[in-house]
Structure formats: C-alpha cells, structure tokens
C-alpha cells in the first residue's frame, strides 16, 4: 500500500468535488468563445447573451475570471431548500436531493454568491439540511446489520463520511455473528 493512511479508508471530499465538477450547469457568458473540444466533450460556443451549458469546473473557472454568471440549478434556491428542509424534519426518511448536491452547492456558493439570490439564507438552509440528515444517518446506525444497511436517498458526501467506519463496523459484526444463513434457516 503506497497510499498514505488517510487516503486508504475512503475518497476525500476534494476528490468528490472534482467528480461533481463534471456535471453541467447553465451559465450566462460575458465573453465570446468558439465551440471548444475538451477531453470530456465539446462545449460552447459561448455567445452572450445566450445561455450555455458547460461543466461546473469550467463555469467556476470562468466565474473566477469574471467572464460569466452562473445560473444556479433549480434546486439551489431558498424556496426549494425550505420545502425540502421542512420535509426532512417532518418525515423519518431522507428526502430526495440531487446525489451530489453538497459538492455542487458549495462550489457555486464559494465562487458565485452574487449569482444566487439570498446566498446567506441558502447557505444556512443547506447547513440545517445537512444537520437534519446527519441525525437520520445516526439513527440508521442503530439498525446496522452484518450484511446490509439501507439508507435510501443519502448523498455522495454523506455516504463518503460514513463509509470508512460503516465498513469496519460491518466487518466486525460479520465476524461476531455465526453464519447468519444456517441460523436463520434453523430458527423458524
């Protein structure tokens, strides 16, 4: 194992962010650019004031250079998040969110808070949402079993946070439980 110990257990949040950067977002370009070929595909052309869909990493890059406005995805606004948060706190299961919402939201909020209406409110809603969901994954823990754990609708960042230790705990439980199948067969 050539990897340093912290990298062995799981993917890092930074790597997840990198993966999420491949997703397309809409932007409002401020510069003109011909259609350009990248490894992941050809994007463009950018012709203001026409909107264009490009990968998040490119949008972030352009935004940092003040060459575009990012149009936030339809779930990144106060009303939507408010609604999800109230659903999150009133039902026991995870509410449905885009799989990589945490990474995308952070990337956009970091570079383009001026493109989002009421960015501070959005930020605090995301934080509340995260805490509500964390409480749920904690409850899911009590149901941990040696063979499976089902947490539908949890998102990549949440799964990643739990992964190293869930794997280990399940490994221990597998060792501690005696051949589950024979016992289950013998019991009924």
């Amino acid at each position: 194992m050539a990897l340093p110990p912290p990298l062995r257990t799981s993917v890092t949040p930074q790597e997840l962010e990198l993966i999420a950067s491949e997703q397309l977002v809409e932007i409002l370009p401020l510069i003109t650019m011909e259609k350009t070929a990248f490894i992941s595909g050809a994007y463009g052309p950018l012709r203001p004031p026409a909107k264009c869909r490009i990968p998040l990493w490119m949008a972030v890059n352009l935004k940092v250079k003040k060459k575009c406005h990012i149009i936030p995805p339809d779930w990144l606004n106060v009303e939507f998040l408010q609604e999800r948060l109230s659903r999150e706190t009133s039902y026991p299961e995870f509410s449905q969110m885009p799989f990589r919402f945490a990474e995308i939201a952070k990337a956009i909020l970091d570079v383009a808070p001026d493109d989002i209406q009421n960015a501070d409110k959005v930020r605090s809603l995301l934080k509340d949402l995260r805490e509500a969901r964390q409480a749920k994954s904690r409850e899911g823990l009590a149901k941990l079993d040696h063979s499976e754990l089902s947490l539908p609708n949890s998102c990549s960042m949440e799964i990643n946070e739990l992964r190293p230790f869930f794997i280990h705990a399940m490994g221990v439980l597998t060792q501690l439980s005696r051949e589950g199948e024979d016992r289950a067969a013998a019991q009924p």
Binding site: P6, T12, P13, K106, D110, E161, R163, P164, F165
Partner: peptide, 18 residues
C-alpha cells in the same frame, strides 16, 4: 476512523480555497 472522516468532511465544508 469515524473521527478522522468526520473531521475531514467538516474541514471540506469549512474550506474556502475556491
């Protein structure tokens, strides 16, 4: 394990090296 991973996630949420 749990401490390390939640520390790491927390650090990411709080970082601003964009």
């Amino acid at each position: 394990l749990a401490q390390e991973s939640s520390k790491r996630t927390k650090r990411w949420y709080e970082s601003h090296d964009r």
